[in-house]
Write a protein that binds this DNA or RNA. Structure first.
Length: 653
DNA sequence: AAAAAAG
């Protein structure tokens, strides 16, 4: 991929890659992907059985999408396993093993070769091209290899050097693009170098971890813990997890054994600290995953308490890293309190995370939602003997896109995740679906932890291929084979929508997201329209009309076009309305640093109509700006078709 | 105005 290399070159040297000729997907080289293998391979079979055998496993976040423009040709969307993954028997024998090898290998790296990256801050460390460029330690390197992380994802390429340089970081990258590994690698590296220092590490009674990773839900903490454990295998780094809903005794015992990296949800963490079984005084690394959520209303006080009033070293004496797929300005502003001279990274446009997710919105009255869902699921089920699931036939970019989500015989691999508004609604839909003969299970915060985990296990394994969920499942969870996310009730917040649909289309694979839009969702019309347009999804005309009707666009409901990569609020103009949730700041004609928004505007004005029509980018965007304290670099022209092309190339019809 | 996070 020569044109990709133009991007990964040294940051010191501005590169001006030549624009590749646009090549229609059907004319592209047949060896483009080698992803999407025949699912009858022994590897696939084995991975499936592993899933049944170890259902509690967490999975690495993988893959990503980069391009936002949809295809103009008929394509086949499959959700089958990628071919790249190869089983590693040795890794399978590890005590921490699970079926993750299939996932880590399932990353479709080609799907996110060229995406815009914005990096701001002082003296930003250069991105890396390969893991080998950074001294991560032998054991960690070996684990990375075992996981088949052959090549870093963009967020990893950019975030790891920053983190390894000891810099604070605020990072914004698409759902499923490998954020967990991006913060785990540097932490494990740093901790394994420190842990041999003789400094008093606390006695048996009070555990003093060197690193703390906070996340907003128990299941997500669990997942991060499981994944980090794999990365830390053989490094001597000790991990522990702390979350509520489960007896604290075992977790405390694990703390006593010594812990270098603690993964936790806030409540149980505070509990442990107040019991004086845990101290944060030795913390050198603090990570907030889903950071915007963690600093959202309802969570902020708790996080502030942990970070500012619990003996944790202040900013500057610890390294703080914040990660999320979404980062509203007001949250950035708040988060700055926790950071010291930080680097801001925005990898790809958040909205473009949906590039591989076909988004549909349907106008459905509340009363009609259930029958409509039934129709949808019935079509998907194809009379119960489901070897092929013909899911959607949608119009995208004026062209008919026949998207066939096809699975290898087993129904359980077509997982459908249904989001609802309330816990009660989740219960009701669960039992209603069950009565209608659809194997569904619900997950929400009123269930006891065991039920929650059981529901997730049952869903992951395919035993219950329909999961009805509240927002407890909207963030971070990496569930392979989720082919369809249905927003039975739309969320109030467009960011929640982004996270919800991000449960599908992970690891560079395609996915489908269907939303039932009712009158109650009018306030979402504008931001939803903008998001879909950014991802070049077909926006129904009725939705556009709602969006245009200013009556319905409540203040703060919209996002500025082009904000989707996230913008460093420090670059924003103070004069700009603070209330504008997604105010993108002061990039203007005089700004030395073009914003990603400007970047796309430039793309739209190029003369190469054909190229632009299809890929919505241009050679104009292939610049490298390196100012003293800010740099924005854009990749070569986006290969929006890339992952579709690999599908087509692999012979799917 | 819902959900999540301690018990």
């Amino acid at each position: 991929m020569a044109r990709n290399d133009t991007f990964t070159g040294s940051p010191r040297k501005p590169t001006r890659p030549t624009r590749p000729r646009y090549l229609p997907p059907h004319l592209r080289p047949q060896n483009a992907g080698s992803v999407f293998p025949d699912t009858d391979t022994p590897e696939f079979t084995r991975s499936r059985s592993n899933r049944f055998n170890s259902p509690r496993t967490a999975r690495p976040t993988g893959g990503g999408r980069g391009r936002g423009r949809g295809p103009r040709i008929p394509v086949t969307i499959t959700n089958r396993q990628n071919a790249n993954w190869v089983s590693d028997e040795k890794f399978d024998e590890l005590d921490v093993t699970d079926d993750s090898s299939e996932v880590t290998n399932g990353i479709n790296f080609d799907a996110y070769e060229d995406i815009p990256v914005q990096a701001t801050g002082e003296n930003i460390p250069a991105p890396m091209k390969a893991f080998e460029e950074i001294d991560l330690g032998d054991a960690l390197k070996q684990n990375i290899k075992r996981c088949k992380f052959l090549k870093p994802t963009p967020i990893q390429r950019h975030a790891i050097p920053v983190a390894v340089a000891g810099r604070d970081l605020m990072a914004c990258a698409q759902t499923g693009s490998g954020k967990t590994a991006a913060f785990c690698f540097p932490i494990i590296r740093g901790v394994s170098k420190r842990r041999f220092s003789p400094a008093g590490r606390g006695g048996r009674a009070v555990a003093c971890p060197l690193a703390l990773i906070l996340s907003p839900t128990r299941e997500l903490s669990c997942q991060i813990y499981e994944e980090a454990k794999k990365f830390a295998h053989g490094t001597g780094v000790k991990l522990a997890v702390a979350y509520g809903g489960t007896p604290i005794a075992q977790q405390l015992r694990n703390l006593e054994k010594g812990v270098d990296i603690l993964v936790a949800t806030p409540g149980r963490l505070v509990d442990m600290i107040e019991r004086e079984r845990l101290s944060l005084r030795m913390i050198k690394y603090l990570t907030l995953d889903e950071a915007d959520r963690m600093l959202d209303m309802g969570f902020e006080q708790q996080i502030r308490k942990i970070v500012e009033q619990m003996d944790m070293p202040p900013p500057g004496r610890r390294q703080t890293m914040l990660f999320s797929a979404t980062f509203p300005n007001n949250i950035q502003r708040m988060a700055a309190d926790f950071l010291s001279n930080y680097v801001f990274l925005a990898v790809g446009r958040v909205g473009s995370s949906t590039g591989l997710i076909v988004q549909r919105v349907e106008l459905v009255e509340d009363m009609a939602k259930r029958p409509h869902l039934l129709d949808l699921l019935s079509a998907q089920w194809s009379n119960g003997t489901c070897t092929k699931v013909h899911l959607i036939s949608a119009f995208i970019c004026n062209a008919v896109v026949l998207a066939v989500i096809e699975f290898s015989g087993k129904l359980e691999h077509a997982l459908t995740l249904i989001f609802v508004e309330t816990k009660r609604g989740a219960n009701e839909l669960e039992s209603w679906l069950s009565r209608k003969g659809f194997p569904a299970v619900a997950i929400h915060g009123d269930k006891i932890q065991m039920e929650r985990e059981q529901a997730l296990r049952s869903f992951k394994s395919g035993a219950t291929p329909i999961l009805v969920a509240t927002d407890v499942a909207s963030r971070g969870l990496d569930i392979p084979h989720v082919a369809h996310v249905i927003n039975f009730d739309l969320p109030r917040n467009i960011d929640d929508y982004v996270h919800r649909i991000g449960r599908t289309g992970r690891a560079g694979k395609c996915g489908l997201a269907t939303a039932f839009f009712s009158e109650k969702n009018m306030s979402l019309a504008k931001s939803l329209t903008e998001l879909m347009m950014e991802a070049n999804q077909e926006v129904p005309s009725w939705l556009s009309q709602y969006a245009d009707a200013e009556n319905y666009s409540f203040s703060g409901g919209g996002r500025d076009k082009g904000r989707f990569g996230g913008y460093d609020f420090r670059k924003g103009s103070p004069s700009r309305s603070e209330s504008n949730y997604y105010s993108r700041g002061s990039y203007n004609d005089h700004s030395p640093v073009p914003s990603i928004g400007d970047y796309h505007a430039a793309a739209a004005s190029t003369s190469d109509g054909f190229y632009n029509d299809h890929c919505s980018t241009s050679a104009n965007a292939d610049y490298w700006v390196d100012n003293s304290n800010a740099s924005l670099y854009a990749a070569g022209p986006h290969q929006y078709f890339n992952s579709y092309e690999t599908v087509v190339a692999s012979g799917w019809e």
